[in-house]
C-alpha cells in the first residue's frame, strides 16, 4: 500500500521549480534514501511532504496521516539554543500530538520521555540546558523527540551531517529499528556507502527524479553523473512551464 503518493508534483519558490514534475509513490514501511547534489530539491521535497510548502502544481497525498502527524527533522533546525529550556522539557514537546496545548504530562509520559532520552544515549543530560549540548548531542536530542512523536511517517533531512561515526551508527540503528516497526522513513543523505549498506530504496533527485527504485539499480555511475549535470541556478527569464501531453502520461 502506498503511504505517500506524489502526483506530478512541482514544488518551488517564487514560481521557480525546485522539484519538478515528480510522480511516484513510497510504500508503507519503506526505508527510502533521497540523494542528489546540493540544490537538488531534497529539502524542498521534504518541506512539501510535511506541509510547510504548498505545491506549485500537482499534489502529495499521504494515506492515513495528516501532514502534522509526520515527524520531521529539518536540515537546518531553527532552534534558539540560548532559550532556557532543559533537555527533558525539550524532548517532551515530541508528545505534542497526544498532549496538545493543555494536556498534562503524567508519570507514564515522563517514563516515555526518559526512555526516549535513554534510547539516544543522553541519559544524565535530562536537566541540562539545551545550550550546553554539543552538535552531536543536539542531534541525538532531536532524534529523541522524533522517537517520542511516534509517527507513522518519519522524514529526516541530512540527519548525519557533521556527526562522528559513533553517533551516526547509534542513530542509524534507531532508523533501522523504526524500519523494523514498519514505519515509513525517508532520509536525505550524502554518504553513498551508508545508503548502499542500510537503505533498500533510493530516490536520486536532481530537480527531477533521475532514478527511483532499488538502491543498487539507482546508484549507477551513469545516473550519478546525470544528476551532477543538473543546473542549480534558477533562470530568472524562464518561461512558464507547459508540459507536453506525452510527459504527463508518465
Amino acid at each position: 500500500m502506498a503511504q505517500l503518493q506524489f502526483r506530478d508534483v512541482t514544488l518551488g519558490y517564487d514560481r521557480h521549480p525546485a522539484v519538478h514534475h515528480l510522480s511516484g509513490e513510497v510504500a508503507e514501511g519503506a526505508l527510502l534514501a533521497v540523494i542528489g547534489p546540493n540544490g537538488a530539491g531534497k529539502s524542498t521535497l521534504f518541506r512539501g511532504i510535511v506541509g510547510l510548502l504548498k505545491p506549485l502544481a500537482g499534489s502529495i497525498a499521504a494515506a492515513g496521516v495528516k501532514p502534522r502527524e509526520i515527524a520531521y527533522l529539518p536540515q537546518i533546525a531553527d532552534i534558539d539554543r540560548s532559550f532556557p529550556i532543559s533537555v527533558f522539557d525539550f524532548v517532551s514537546t515530541g508528545l505534542w500530538r497526544s498532549t496538545g496545548m493543555f494536556g498534562g504530562i503524567g508519570a507514564a509520559a515522563r517514563a516515555k520521555i526518559a526512555q526516549a532520552i535513554a534510547a539516544v544515549g543522553l541519559t544524565g543530560f535530562e536537566g541540562r540546558g539545551i545550550g550546553t549540548l554539543s552538535g552531536g548531542q543536539m542531534q541525538r536530542m532531536l532524534f529523541a523527540r522524533v522517537l517520542l512523536q511516534d509517527a507513522r511517517v518519519i522524514v529526516l533531512d541530512e540527519p548525519f551531517n557533521a556527526m562522528d561515526s559513533k553517533t551516526s551508527a547509534d542513530l542509524l540503528r534507531l532508523i533501522e529499528h523504526w524500519h523494523g516497526e514498519r514505519r515509513t522513513v525517508l532520509a536525505a543523505l550524502h554518504d553513498m556507502e551508508m545508503v548502499r549498506a542500510h537503505f533498500p530504496q533510493t530516490l536520486l533527485l536532481a530537480r527531477e527524479a533521475v532514478a527511483w527504485g532499488a538502491t543498487a539499480d539507482v546508484l549507477t555511475t551513469d545516473n550519478l553523473a546525470q544528476a551532477r549535470r543538473m543546473c542549480e541556478a534558477f533562470d530568472d527569464a524562464a518561461a512558464p512551464c507547459v508540459p507536453a501531453p506525452a510527459s504527463r502520461a508518465a
Binding site: 502534522r68 509526520i70 532552534i79 514537546t93 512523536q149
Partner: peptide
Amino acid sequence: PLVVESVDPLFLRTVS
C-alpha cells in the same frame, strides 16, 4: 505554544 515557538518555531509549525 509560546514556549515551543520561542525555542523551535519550525517544529511547532509542523505539529500545530
